[in-house]
Design a protein around this nucleic acid. Structure first.
Lengths: 219, 219
DNA sequence: ACTTCGATGTCGTTT
DNA sequence: AAACGACGTCGAAGT
C-alpha cells in the first residue's frame, strides 16, 4: 500500500463526470491497484476513487488511472508532502455475527418461535420477483409467507406485499397470509403491516441462538 | 490526518459484532475523529470503521473508539511499522455532473423522447408523499405520471405506484397512467411495472444531451 | 432531530 | 458475467 499526501487536483470521467479543485489530500494506492482520494473528514467514503481492475500510469506529476470499462481518474500533483510505501500482505478477513442470513437460519430451524403451530414448507421459496424468506403452513394448514428482517422498516413490508401478490397470482396456493418478523419493528412498519392485514412479530436474537434458557419463555 | 501502519487486531461491537484477527493493516484517523481500518485491497470500503462523532482513547497499545450510541471499536497494536501525521485543511469539495437530477432536466426539456405526443405539465409535481418527477399529458390528453431513475429497479416502480395512488385520490385528475423511465430497466422491475399496468422506457443519456445527432433517430 | 431517497453506492450470492 | 438484495450502507435534502 502506498500513501501519498499531496496538494493535487483530480478529475473523474465515467459513470458521471466529477472534478476536485486543488487542495491537500491523501492518495491511497492499494496492492490490487485500487486508488482512493481522501479528505481529512467525512466518514470513510473517499472523494474520488477507482476500483480494481485498473491500470495506474505515473507520468511525472500526472497520474492516470484507467479501467476496462473506459472510466478514467486523473490526478495532477502540485506538491508532495509525504510518501510512504508498505507491504501489508493478505488479510485474514472479517468475522461477522448477527446478520439477517443468520436470523433467517435460526427462524427456519424454529418456525414455532414465530407463531404456535407454524411449520416450515421451504426457505427461500422462489417467485418471479425474488425468493420469499420462509414459506410455512400454520396450525390450520393455511399458507403463510414470512419476511425476515434484522430491522423491520417500511421497505420490508412492501417486499412482503409484493411476494404475497405474486404467490396468489402465480400459484395454486390460494389465500396467503403474511407475517413480518424482525428484531425490532419500527412504528411506521407496524402501521403499514397491520393495514395490509399482516401480523408482525419481534424476535430476540439471543433467545433464538439458545443463549437464554427456553424456560424463560414459559412465563 | 494520522496514518498508522501496524500489526493489529480489531473488535467492533455495535449494530453487529465483528472481529479482525492479528495482521498488518492501515489505521486512518481523520481530523473529525473518524477511524478506519484498511487492508491492502478490496475497493475503498474499510474492514472496520467508526464515524464521527466519537471519542478516541489511546492507552499504550490499546486504542478504544466509542460513540454516543454505545458502539465501540477496539484496536490492539502489536507492532507499529509507520506513523505519519499531516495537516490537510478543509476540502473545497466535489463538483458532479450526470446524476439523476440532470437526467430529469433533460427529459423535462424533451418529453417526446419518452413517448410520442407527450407534453410536460410540471416537473416535481407535489403530492402528500413527495413530488412526482414529471407530470405530463399524452397525445389523447390523458394524465401521465413519469418516474425517472438512473437505474430502474423495483424500488422505483413502488415509488411510482404510490404516487399514482395518491394522484388518483387527492386530485381531480381522474385516471393517471404511469411510465417508468431509466437508462437501464432491470428485469424484475419490468415484470413489476407491467403487472401494475405501467409502461417502462429506456433512454440514452448521450442522445438526450444531444451529443449524437437527432437524425440518427430517424432510421 | 428525523425521514426519505439517490449513489461512480459496495458487497456477497446465485443464476 | 449479470442480476438481485442486504448493508454497521453513506450522504444530502427536505420537514
Amino acid at each position: 500500500m502506498r500513501l501519498v499526501i499531496a496538494r493535487c487536483s483530480v478529475d473523474y470521467s465515467g459513470r458521471l463526470d466529477a472534478h476536485l479543485p486543488e487542495a491537500t489530500r491523501l492518495i491511497m494506492v492499494k496492492a490490487d491497484g485500487c486508488v482512493a482520494i481522501h479528505a481529512d473528514g467525512g466518514a470513510y467514503k473517499p472523494l474520488n476513487w477507482m476500483n480494481a481492475p485498473n491500470t495506474l500510469n505515473i507520468d511525472d506529476s500526472t497520474w492516470t488511472v484507467a479501467n476496462p470499462k473506459g472510466e478514467t481518474l486523473t490526478i495532477t500533483l502540485f506538491e508532495v508532502l509525504s510518501d510512504v510505501d508498505a507491504e501489508l500482505g493478505e488479510d485474514p478477513g472479517l468475522q461477522k455475527d448477527g446478520v439477517e442470513a443468520h436470523l433467517q437460519e435460526l427462524l427456519a430451524a424454529r418456525p414455532e418461535s414465530i407463531e404456535d403451530g407454524l411449520r416450515l414448507v421451504r426457505r427461500e421459496y422462489p417467485t418471479a420477483i425474488g425468493p420469499v424468506d420462509l414459506l410455512c403452513r400454520d396450525a390450520d394448514d393455511g399458507v403463510v409467507a414470512v419476511e425476515v428482517k434484522r430491522r423491520g422498516e417500511i421497505d420490508g413490508v412492501e417486499q412482503l406485499s409484493r411476494y404475497i401478490e405474486r404467490l396468489e397470482l402465480d400459484s395454486t396456493l390460494g389465500d396467503v397470509r403474511g407475517v413480518f418478523v424482525a428484531q425490532v419493528v419500527k412504528p411506521q412498519a407496524r402501521v403499514l403491516a397491520e393495514s395490509r392485514g399482516f401480523r408482525w412479530v419481534e424476535v430476540d436474537y439471543d433467545d433464538l441462538r439458545g443463549l437464554r434458557p427456553d424456560e424463560l419463555r414459559l412465563f
